[in-house]
């Protein structure tokens, strides 16, 4: 049987999920734009890079870092570093960047 899907902007945000499962905006942006480089696993270049850079003195995973602040996050997203490119405002808007920066800088238990 054919499944035909028409029209509509499709992104993680349009999924039908229970309210309790909806991640906060910052986490959603991280998963959409950052996770493929900065998630866990040996095929994530950002994680490999930070692991090599800090040699275990800081967590290689951005989501586990306790020393990030919003200005720093925003700087790297808009300026990039080495192989990491800057992100345009059509990719991550200023409002989304605020949410992402807040998410990565949130106090951790």
């Amino acid at each position: 049987m054919s499944k035909l899907f028409s029209a509509g902007i499709l992104s993680l945000a349009t999924l039908t999920v229970h309210a309790a499962d909806v991640p906060p905006e910052g986490k959603r942006i991280f998963d959409q734009w950052c996770w493929s480089c900065h998630g866990p696993g040996p095929d994530k270049p950002g994680t490999l890079g930070l692991d090599a850079k800090y040699g275990g003195t800081l967590p290689a995973l951005l989501e586990e870092r306790r020393d990030l602040n919003p200005a720093l996050v925003k700087y790297f997203v808009r300026n990039g570093i080495y192989m990491m490119t800057p992100f345009r405002k059509t990719e991550i808007t200023d409002a989304q960047l605020e949410a992402l920066a807040a998410y990565l800088s949130r106090p951790k238990p």
Binding site: P45, L48, G49, A52, Y82
Partner: peptide, 22 residues
């Protein structure tokens, strides 16, 4: 399966302490 693994080529890693800019 899409990924960004290709950016580890030239990126910083234990094998490559001096990453390129692209």
């Amino acid at each position: 399966i899409p990924s960004l693994e290709a950016f580890s080529m030239g990126g910083r890693s234990a094998m490559n302490p001096n990453p390129s800019q692209g």
